[in-house]
Design a protein around this nucleic acid. Structure first.
Lengths: 141, 141
DNA sequence: AATATATGTTACGATAACTGTAACATATGG
DNA sequence: CCATATGTTACAGTTATCGTAACATATATT
């Protein structure tokens, strides 16, 4: 799953949990409401459990519960938890041997540039909380 | 080709042209120096010719020449010329029918967010000229 | 005018990524 | 003991990417 899809799918699940916080919600329940495949949800929520965004309980009447208030959950930590490969797919073709110095210098240049952009994106996401997203999606225009 | 790869490949070609500006350079020549496939170079350079960044001449001893000074060429226009599909691959899974309002609202939320990020990236690239890249890659640390 | 050279464009097979789903081990409440 | 849920792995179908080849078009050069 691309980083962006994982991120939006995670937020879909977390928003559902925020709105159904009285009892644990199973991946099947979340799936039928959000439309995201249950297996994929489990994979994402397992990662989010590791960083303490949700708590999980197995067995009958188990499921997922939001572990923190929505205002204390921000996109950046979600992104970091679910994303293994670095970056938003801003890749430069891997350097091949025997090319000119310029070519590898330019590769480095763009790797640096993309890393910089990556940091700015994460900085932006650090200021976006689940709370703010819930507010935003609640107001119908 | 992903946008980021197209961009770096374009810059590789343009840097080569900037450093060999006395005569037209063929795609084959640029390819052997940069390591980028000649066909792909022609595809990219054809787009760059349309926006007047390079001029092309066909036939014997023809090829590509930089049409402007490197300080008047910036990354944003290169990016826009070569990129057909929008955005740096910050996609949200296409919305499926029959899902909850929240789900589609969240899709919209991320589409907006990614569009915003996209604009910021382009803004950043507008300030990066070919000249500045040439300077940067010339200084060996 | 003929020819070699170069661009512009399309097509194609091979490789890799993504999608959706299934399957199953592990754990736990009733 | 068993139904239910998570955690994890695997797999086939589809889609995207990659590198390359091929060829039509155009044009210097001889």
């Amino acid at each position: 799953m691309p980083a962006s899809t994982k991120l939006s799918n995670s937020v879909k699940a977390l928003c559902f949990l925020a709105r159904n916080s009285s009892t644990p919600q199973s991946s099947a329940t979340i799936s039928s409401s959000t439309g995201v495949n249950a297996s994929k949800l489990r994979r994402l929520l397992a990662d989010l459990a590791e960083i303490g965004v949700v708590t999980t309980t197995k067995g009958a009447s188990g499921g997922y519960v939001l572990a923190r208030e929505p205002e204390n959950i921000h996109l950046q930590e979600i992104y970091c938890a679910i994303e293994d490969r670095k970056a938003f797919h801003l890749d430069v073709t891997s350097m091949t041997l025997g090319q000119s110095d310029d070519t590898s210098a330019i590769n480095h240049y763009f790797l640096d540039l993309f890393a910089e952009i990556q940091i700015e994106i994460e900085e932006k996401m650090r200021n976006l909380t689940l709370e703010s997203i819930l507010e935003r999606i609640s107001q119908k225009d």
